[in-house]
C-alpha cells in the first residue's frame, strides 16, 4: 500500500519479482557466476548509492528479506513471481516455481505464481505444463524466447511448436504470457531483441494477454508499433523504471512514448526484485512529473490516474484480482498478525 501525498491509498501489484539462490554452494559452473555478476552489474549501476547491496547479500538475500523489502518496508500489496530456471548454471535452479510456491504458501494472498514452458520440450513439456497449472493454479507464464538449448539458439513464439503451448495455455486458463524481450542477460543472439513474433501471436490468440517485459528495449520503436496494433499487448516496466533515478530525462522520454503508443491501460509496473527494491522505485515514480517539453512533443501526461493504473490496476485487471476484496483480505491478515 502506498499512501499518496493527497492521502489516497494506491494498491501496488509488483509485476516482476524473483527469489533466487546464486550462492557459491548453488553455482554449478562459471556461467552461473558470470550470470549473477551481470545481474549485480544492473543493480549496482542503476540503483541510488544508498540502496546498494553487497555482492554477497545480492547472491542470496533469502525469503525473509524479500518479504520485508516488498511488503513491510516496501509498498507492494501483491507481487508476481516470474521464474527463471537456469538449471544448467545452478544446481537447484536459479529461481524456480517450486521454490516460489513455498514462500507463496507461507504468505497467502501476497503472491501470484507464474510458471514457465519451453516449446522445444515437445509433448513431455505440454504434460508438465498441465501438471504445473493444476498444482499451482497458474494464471501466467514467463518465457525466454532467446534462451539457448542444445544447438538451438532460441525460438519464436510464432513457431508451430509454440502455438501448441499457447493453445494449451488457453485451455488451462493461463491468460498472461510474459515474454522477456529485453537486454542480453542469458546466452542469446540478436533475434532476442526482435518483437515481431509477438505481433503474430497476439493476432492469433486474442484471448491471451502478451506482456512484453522490458518493453522490448532495446527495440522500443518496433515494440510501440506492434503494441499499438494489437489490443492484447502490454509493456512491463522492469529494467526501464530504474532509469528514473540515474537518467530522469531519458525515462521521461521513454514513458511518454509508451503513454502515446500503447497507453496508460497497458503498462505494468515491475521492480525486478532483487535487482531493485520497489520502495525507492515507487516513491520516485509517484513523485515524477514529465517535463513540459516532453509533454508538448507527445501530448501525453503522466497523471495520478495513469500512475494508479500502472502501479496496480492494470495487473489486477489481467490477473482477475478484485482490489477492494483483496485489500480487505490483507487488512484482516494484518489484524490477525498483530
Amino acid at each position: 500500500m502506498y499512501k499518496a501525498k493527497d492521502g489516497s491509498e494506491i494498491f501496488i501489484i509488483d509485476g516482476h519479482v524473483h527469489l533466487w539462490d546464486a550462492s557459491p554452494e548453488n553455482i554449478r559452473n562459471i556461467h552461473g557466476k558470470q550470470f549473477i555478476d551481470c545481474f549485480y552489474g544492473y543493480h549496482a549501476s542503476l540503483s541510488p548509492p544508498e540502496q546498494l547491496w553487497t555482492a554477497e547479500k545480492f547472491a542470496k538475500y533469502g525469503a525473509e528479506q524479500m518479504v520485508k523489502d516488498l511488503f513491510i518496508d516496501g509498498p507492494d500489496d501483491m507481487a508476481i513471481f516470474q521464474p527463471t530456471y537456469l538449471k544448467d548454471f545452478y544446481k537447484n535452479g536459479f529461481n524456480t516455481l517450486e521454490q516460489n510456491a513455498i514462500l507463496s504458501k507461507r504468505y497467502p494472498n501476497r503472491f501470484i505464481l507464474n510458471g514457465a514452458f519451453d516449446p522445444r520440450d515437445g509433448e513431455g513439456g505440454l504434460e508438465a505444463l498441465e501438471a504445473q497449472a493444476e498444482t499451482y493454479k497458474l494464471r501466467g507464464v514467463k518465457l525466454y524466447t532467446a534462451e539457448w538449448k542444445g544447438d538451438s539458439r532460441g525460438y519464436k513464439l510464432s513457431d508451430p511448436a509454440a502455438y501448441k503451448y499457447l493453445e494449451k495455455c488457453e485451455k488451462l486458463g493461463i491468460k498472461n504470457i510474459h515474454v522477456h524481450k529485453g537486454p542480453t542477460i542469458i546466452p542469446l543472439d540478436r533475434d532476442a531483441f526482435d518483437v515481431a513474433d509477438i505481433d503474430h501471436c497476439a493476432t492469433d490468440f486474442p484471448n491471451l494477454n502478451f506482456i512484453v517485459e522490458h518493453c522490448g528495449l532495446p527495440r522500443l520503436d518496433d515494440f510501440c508499433w506492434i503494441a499499438t496494433q494489437e489490443s492484447n499487448v502490454y509493456g512491463g516496466l522492469a529494467v526501464v523504471l530504474p532509469f528514473i533515478h540515474s537518467r530522469p530525462g531519458y525515462f521521461a522520454k521513454v514513458i511518454s512514448e509508451l503513454l502515446f503508443w500503447i497507453g496508460e491501460d497497458k503498462i505494468l509496473f515491475g521492480s525486478d526484485y532483487g535487482i531493485w527494491t520497489p520502495q525507492w522505485l515507487v516513491e520516485k515514480f509517484m513523485n515524477f512529473d514529465l517535463p513540459d517539453e516532453v509533454m508538448k512533443e507527445t501530448g501525453k501526461e503522466l497523471t495520478m490516474t495513469a500512475k494508479r493504473k500502472i502501479l496496480g490496476e492494470n495487473a489486477a485487471r489481467i490477473y482477475g484480482v478484485d482490489i477492494a476484496s483483496q485489500r480487505a483480505k490483507l487488512d484482516r491478515m494484518e489484524q490477525v498478525a498483530a
Binding site: D221, R247, V254, E257
Partner: peptide, 11 residues
C-alpha cells in the same frame, strides 16, 4: 525512438 534505444544500451 532509434536514439532512445541506443541510449538505453549505451547507458
Amino acid at each position: 525512438r532509434v536514439g532512445l534505444n541506443a541510449e538505453f544500451n549505451g547507458a
